[in-house]
Design a protein around this nucleic acid. Structure first.
Lengths: 343, 343
DNA sequence: CTCGCCGATGTGAACGTACACATCGCGACC
DNA sequence: GGTCGCGATGTGTACGTTCACATCGGCGAG
């Protein structure tokens, strides 16, 4: 229909199946099935013949048929909140790679808002694909409710969360990271330290805030109410413009690098030098952070590592192994040039 | 096994069936099937009964069985090169949303390198899931070879590419975007303009380079060999350190915003003011670009739009509609503060 | 030499759904 | 009033694979 006419072509019928392969190889279809599933008791010669037949026909196992009869979809579901952000995207990439290597595929879906209905709809969508396991990268409190409500009967893991449900969580130690960042500022002599946090319903935002407050109180420093942001550079900028009208602090720990970038922008506009007048620490260590003006001191977390570990953990659980490594991944403080001694 | 003992529980057997639903509703399984597929000829009362039975049992259609019998997987494959980058990630998010709305799911895979074997392996992986359509966001020349070689028998679209295979491409007009950026610099009086490009095997890098060169030659300005980068901020930084040793240009058009950020970093270190001594234009308009130091003049492209259009196009093709909108999406020049008159 | 066992292979059934076709009842038309 | 048509529903079958079990030949032990 598209290009040249091929009159004799008997019209592309159907893909070859296991029986076609069997016929060509001169064996029964069950033998072919055994070859596909690496059965040990196959004569090498037979194996060879079957393999040749497979190649000759360009045969591909039909995953749907296989899933139907084994009731195993070989699919891992991923419920994500923000696949565009660097952190989640990096984790997902690692997950995809690990899953593919293990013969699993991924089904990813985004929740459009943090409302319960949206989470439930995403979870429904994934469950309808009979996923075997679930990874949640939507670190929002309500997700846990939804997971409990829906009685999802599969192993699951939440990433980048902390505390609430440790048996199903895997995370970079956000509290520790926040403490490291805060301590760094304290050690530089700062006593008036502000915190710009992420959205309230993000568990990791909450964790970073806790770490910040705890470190401050351990050092007997005055704590002030953190600002609740939305992770975007724009928010950091406008929050900065607002906060810097009263220059009653000399350092700020910002919940992620993007907001830190916006805050630095505000500092420039207000004529403050960084780190001369204001020290700034971010969180995440996105690749661009090293090139901000000035290069940003921040807390690096290994997103790929937790992605890989999530897959390993779930695959282990599917195989019936119970023991797994739940230790939080340690973050790392990367000191660059956005922090300095108190003026 | 996990928490409390439930001795009488008859062990979770199997998910409810279409026949289970039929039994509860007091109809035949075929009637249930009709309800699931929105058949018009169902008595409202029957419809009601079936729906109730579905809810009562918590029935979910088995996608594998459905796929097997219809030989339609309801899956769109996505072959991506860099899901972590802002552009592709944004497109993918839009694709996922559009696909899900249309009742399709996505299968995404990354190619680990631009080598032919890697592309082929990714394509193989997707084909083994009997995808119905393919979206390629790996704008690399070799992908086309692989697609042709493998004789993938499904409709496909490549994103962010241009030129080579227009009947299967959908793109933001990169050439136009590059021309707009370059013309902007020319109009500011610059005559010595450098270009830092993306990797050579990325079609869009090539397109931007072409646009740059054409605009320059239209203005009878001297053209110089562009630098070939890797899209990262780090590359922009090191390239900048190198290039700025000879200050024989006053403006630079950089292939993406991240490299532009790195280049600005280099300018700062070399003591050059932007835009006083050096004007810089980026490409993409990532959300952070507005907060760089200084805020970056750049070319905005609507990644979400091409994602949506890709899905619409493929879905149309699957339905047998041939006509489709192949017009490139127009980019937009966003003028901020990184560009100024020639010193 | 015969029995039993084991490795290698084959046969029947089942998974859950959609499609093609059959059936049934009812109103309309001549 | 019988038949035709159509709306509403039911029955058989196929999709491609794996699992459970059957079969068959050969080889070693008694």
């Amino acid at each position: 229909m598209t290009d040249t006419e091929r009159p004799a072509e008997p019209e592309r019928v159907r893909a070859p199946n296991i029986r076609d392969v069997a016929r060509v190889a001169g064996v029964s279809y069950q033998t072919v099935s055994r070859v596909l599933n690496d059965s040990p008791s196959i004569r090498p010669e037979t194996l060879q013949r079957v393999r040749e037949a497979i190649d000759e026909l360009g045969y591909r196992p039909n995953q749907a048929a296989r899933a139907l009869v084994t009731s195993r979809s070989r699919t891992i579901g991923v419920l994500a909140a923000q696949t565009v952000h660097y952190g989640p995207a990096t984790s997902i990439q690692a997950i995809e790679s690990a899953a593919r290597e293990a013969g699993y595929r991924l089904s990813i879906t985004n929740i459009s808002s943090s409302e319960y209905a949206s989470i439930k709809s995403g979870l429904d969508y994934l469950m309808s694909q009979s996923i075997e396991a679930l990874i949640v990268i939507a670190p929002q409190v309500r997700v846990f409710e939804a997971i409990n409500d829906l009685q999802i009967g599969v192993p699951f893991v939440t990433l980048e969360a902390t505390g609430l449900n440790t048996s199903h969580s895997l995370w970079v130690d956000q509290v520790m990271g926040a403490r490291m960042a805060t301590r760094h500022l304290i050690e530089l002599g700062h006593t008036e330290i502000m915190h710009i946090s992420g959205p309230q319903d993000w568990i990791e935002a909450e964790a970073r805030m806790q770490g910040f407050l705890r470190e401050l109180s351990d050092a007997d420093l005055r704590t002030r109410a953190p600002i609740l942001g939305d992770w975007t550079a724009s928010f950091g900028y406008y929050a900065g413009l607002e906060l810097l009208r009263y220059r009653d602090f000399t350092a700020v720990f910002v919940g992620n690098d993007q907001m830190a970038l916006g805050f630095m922008h505000a500092c420039r506009e207000m004529g403050l030098s960084v780190p001369g007048d204001m020290s700034i620490v971010g969180f995440d260590d996105i690749p661009e952070a090293a090139h901000y003006a000035p290069p940003l001191t921040t807390v690096r977390q290994n997103f790929a590592e937790i992605g890989r570990r999530a897959v390993a953990l779930l695959l282990g659980e599917l195989r019936g192994e119970v023991e797994m490594n739940h230790d939080p991944v340690q973050p790392e403080l990367i000191i660059r040039q956005s922090t300095g001694r108190r003026p």
